[in-house]
Design a protein around this nucleic acid. Structure first.
Length: 297
DNA sequence: CACTTGACCTGTCCGC
DNA sequence: TGCGGACAGGTCAAGT
């Protein structure tokens, strides 16, 4: 569920909190969540100071003074939550900022996979991941972008130098698939998942099942503009909290209060008033107004 | 090569 | 109330 806006929100939160902090203690309980050799952890993570916090696609990079980086993918249910307390535990106001109120939780909990405790009582970072799809990998900083994951990742959609022309070009080799499948394909453009694919396709009035080859240049130009608008709006809102997503303080994102189709099945379309439908496209639950998002003939 | 499907996991919800 | 199954959807491996 964390897509570009959620991961960027987490990155910003970490960037305010972590640089200058030194990792004193590391605890982990699930191999696939933390696939690192004990020796490497001792040499390059314990005792290292965090120097920088970066993002590429849906991945967060914590650069370390050891010249290694902790590369983090949250996948579906990953959370990075910081508390100003030692690792033995602390209360967190989960859901803070949500209109229905907040829930006080305690960390670590049963979804905690990795705990990083900082020295000089500088707090604790918890990596929680209910479904265990996410991971934290320790890699030499100069080599992080050489791993298989990054080799096939497309450009950053919010990079100011990324143009509509380049955006259209990226779809050339995905002519025979649906526009939704192409949009969530990370090798075409980075960072887009189910929420912002549906939202931007509604904005561009394109039905998600439309084949790429059926779209005109004008359609793709509109989609490019809508996608950038939606992603900017979502970053501004601190992302979307559907089920699991929280920011580094346990608070929720508010984009879904602006959402036009996502999780609005049965409710009236803001453009034409017809009920939003939930269908299946590219193997994903897909929200669409079939009245005003026409399949291009 | 282009494209689709299943696996990885756990929690929630729905029908019986 | 419990129980099985569908569903949630990011990425990769294996399939057509």
């Amino acid at each position: 569920m964390p897509e570009l806006p959620e991961v960027e929100t987490v990155r910003r939160g970490l960037a305010e909190l972590l640089p200058g902090k030194t990792i004193q203690q590391v605890n982990y309980d699930w191999p696939s969540s933390f696939p690192n050799e004990e020796a490497a952890v001792n040499r390059f993570l314990r005792g290292a100071t965090i120097t920088n916090v970066r993002r590429r696609a849906k991945v967060i990079l914590l650069d370390l003074s050891s010249k290694y980086s902790l590369v983090i993918h949250l996948k579906m249910t990953g959370q990075l939550v910081y508390v100003e307390a030692p690792a033995q535990g602390a209360s967190v106001r989960f859901g803070a900022g949500h209109p229905t109120g907040s829930l006080v939780g305690h960390l670590p909990d049963k979804s905690t996979r990795v705990t990083l405790q900082f020295s000089k009582r500088a707090g604790t970072l918890f990596f929680n991941d209910q479904r265990k799809f996410g991971w934290m990998k320790l890699l030499p900083t100069p080599e992080v972008f050489s791993i298989d994951f990054f080799k096939a990742i497309g450009p950053e959609p919010l990079d100011p130098s990324f143009t509509a022309e380049q955006f259209r070009q990226r779809f050339m080799r995905r002519q025979n698939t649906s526009i939704k499948a192409a949009l969530i394909d990370q090798s075409v453009v980075a960072g887009i998942g189910n929420i912002y694919a549906d939202e931007s396709l509604w904005g561009a009035q394109i039905h998600p099942a439309t084949l790429v080859r059926q779209l005109t240049s004008a359609d793709l130009n509109t989609l490019f503009a809508e996608l950038r608008f939606i992603l900017h709006k979502a970053v501004e809102a601190g992302g979307s909290t559907d089920k699991n997503y929280v920011n580094v303080r346990g608070g929720v994102g508010s984009y879904l209060t602006f959402a036009r189709v996502f999780r609005r099945e049965g409710q009236p379309c803001f453009r034409c008033g017809q009920p939003i439908q939930k269908v299946r496209v590219a193997g994903r639950g897909t929200h669409v107004c079939s009245n005003c998002q026409k399949v291009t003939p």
